[in-house]
């Protein structure tokens, strides 16, 4: 049997990797949140960190952004160690954290105009407002925005400085379906410009929609890295053949559903009632992956 494990595009030079993490460890109060996490993000790709709440997604991203210290491991982001990198490095990364970080008394337009002063080549405020769909809220104070609108402002602020690498920490939490789709368009637009995107999410459809590769984080490590369609390839090979046998449902989990069917059909001359053959979907695979021992930490 051949394995279908996906090999990540091996960077030939250090320059081809936007992010390289080896053995990242971080504890809070003696409790390990990250425990030897390895991660590589190639320039120009969109990488999604997928995992349950408390799995260490935000901690990982914050270490990469250089705003949180680490206890162990090596980290390189755009060729520099985030713990010591300076302003020129910060200008190359964009951060969309879980709060927008603008004063509540400012209007959306004032906030964008103000933060433009921190960048050497800021995107125009009008362009940003259009990109995140906040044109009609330009004159509204930040404190009066809905949760989803604040997320959109956070996204606009994160990409204002034309970053080479954008960190998006649960960017669509609290957005309605229309806003989410609009946000996905925005991310595709960034990708088209060559921006590397590293996002965390607990929405599987978002990861499947946007990411070239998905890393599932559980128990402080990456338990699997693969393109969304190939995630959990091992798990997906197992199909479930199920049918009704005299009114009772019978199920067989197997890697060879055709053989099971052949036997079943050979012993059943008539129609098989309630016959189904199913394979796990992305969600089933994900749930199994994060349910590994220690995975609920």
């Amino acid at each position: 049997m051949t394995t279908t494990e996906w090999a990540p595009p091996a960077p030939t030079t250090a320059d081809a990797a936007a992010v390289v993490v080896r053995g990242l460890g971080k504890s809070y109060g003696g409790k390990a949140v990250l425990d030897g996490l390895d991660l590589e993000v190639v320039r120009g790709e969109c990488f999604a960190l997928l995992g349950p709440n408390g799995a260490g997604k935000t901690t990982t991203i914050e270490v990469l952004e250089g705003v949180r210290s680490r206890d162990a491991g090596e980290v390189q982001v755009l060729g520099a160690d985030p713990a010591t990198a300076g302003r020129a490095w910060r200008a190359r990364i964009g951060v969309v954290s879980q709060g927008e970080g603008a004063a509540q008394a400012l209007t959306v337009r004032e906030a964008l105009d103000h933060f433009a002063a921190y960048h050497s080549r800021p995107r125009a405020t009008a362009e940003l407002l259009a990109a995140v769909g906040l044109e009609e809220k330009a004159g509204t104070r930040v404190g009066r925005l809905s949760g989803g609108q604040r997320r959109r402002l956070a996204v606009a602020l994160g990409v204002q400085g034309r970053p080479e690498l954008v960190f998006l920490d649960e960017p669509t939490t609290g957005m309605d379906p229309v806003a989410r789709r609009q946000f996905w368009e925005l991310v595709r637009g960034l990708r088209a410009e060559g921006t590397t995107v590293l996002l965390t999410t607990h929405y599987l459809d978002e990861a499947a929609e946007l990411a070239d590769r998905v890393g599932v984080i559980a128990g402080g490590r990456l338990v699997e890295v693969a393109p969304p369609a190939e995630l959990g390839a091992e798990l997906r090979r197992v199909a479930t053949v199920s049918w009704l046998d005299g009114g009772a449902r019978r199920s067989v989990r197997t890697e060879a559903p055709a053989a099971v069917l052949r036997d079943l059909l050979a012993t059943t001359p008539h129609e098989v009632p309630g016959l189904t053959v199913t394979r796990p979907g992305l969600e089933d695979v994900y749930l199994q992956l994060v349910d590994t021992p220690g995975g609920d930490r």
Binding site: E65, V67, G86, R87, W89, R90, A91, I93, V95, S97, G99, E100, G101, A102, A103, Q104, F115, Y118, H119, L157, G161
Partner: peptide, 17 residues
């Protein structure tokens, strides 16, 4: 207050001196 509200985090990631 600004620190508690997360406004200083925004300044930090922007590399504000």
């Amino acid at each position: 207050g600004e620190r508690e509200a997360g406004q200083l985090e925004r300044l930090q990631v922007l590399g504000t001196p």
